[in-house]
Design a binder for these strands. Structure first.
Lengths: 153, 153
DNA sequence: TCTGAAAGACATGTGAG
DNA sequence: CTCACATGTCTTTCAGA
């Protein structure tokens, strides 16, 4: 899976992560190359799946999504059918931005973005009515200190 | 802070979140409008800060970043100077993708992406040598069920 | 591999309905 | 607010080193 990337590739990725709207010329200038080779490298990295897609990052506050919760979930159920339903519920709910299955005594962690505490409660009630969950702890974010999509390359 | 957005704005935002590389014509066609109005709306939303920036999303696995940890932190220190140092450390470390200050008995949560468990340990040792921390729980992600940058609009 | 040139597509701006 | 067109810039391709 791991693709071989040289120094130039990494510089290009760093630039694309900072700002994907820059022109090829600009990127080429910054990384010390020229248009065509940069274009070829980007194409290769897209084909290799290193670059997944290009997206607009929105400001959640400006959209009125002012509450962010991390939800720790313990479950007593580990049957395939239960899990299938649970994962489906998570994938279908747009307020669930992240969901991970964990090692250890906590089984799942979710990151949920909603308008306010009441909207979280609505989400929570809907979720537990869909699937049986043993124990839930919600951690309310008071302040987003850092949130980046930029991976270290 | 919250900007007034109509239905058309929301459709455009949804498209831009799915794929920001589409041409204006394509977006216009999908949302049932034409180029100029779509372009004006996008410009307005950028100026209003609804659209923050445009970025390339990379595949962490393809980059060899195969381990993802959520780190729960309790601290006994709540002095301004300690906090300043702690936040600075978090912001400067590129492996920290997210950091939130929480309400409740857990003070902070981090999301950390690294190559492997050893790299996490290196990160952890470096962090606790920089600032005093009372209690740390690391949750290891076994499976990323969902991870999206798409906010519900 | 890179360079340079050249086509074609596209974003951006203007003026009119 | 929308449409249609103009212009200049950018992506994308190709030949040649």
């Amino acid at each position: 899976m791991a693709v071989r990337l040289d120094d130039m590739d990494r510089k290009i990725l760093a630039e694309l992560q900072v700002d994907a709207e820059q022109s090829l010329d600009e990127i080429a200038r910054k990384v010390g190359s020229s248009k065509t080779p940069v274009w070829n490298r980007i194409r290769r990295m897209k084909e290799a799946g290193v670059i997944t897609r290009q997206t607009a990052i929105l400001d959640p506050e400006a959209l009125g999504l002012e509450a962010c919760f991390f939800v720790l979930i313990r479950t007593s159920e580990h049957e395939a059918e239960w899990q299938r339903k649970f994962l489906k519920a998570l994938r279908e709910r747009p307020e669930v931005l992240e969901a991970h299955r964990l090692a250890g005594d906590i089984d799942y962690i979710l990151k949920v973005r909603v308008k306010n505490a009441r909207a979280y409660d609505t989400f929570y009630q809907a979720l537990i009515s869909e699937v049986r969950i043993y124990n839930v702890t919600a951690l309310l974010s008071m302040e987003e200190i850092k949130a980046t999509t930029m991976l270290p390359v």
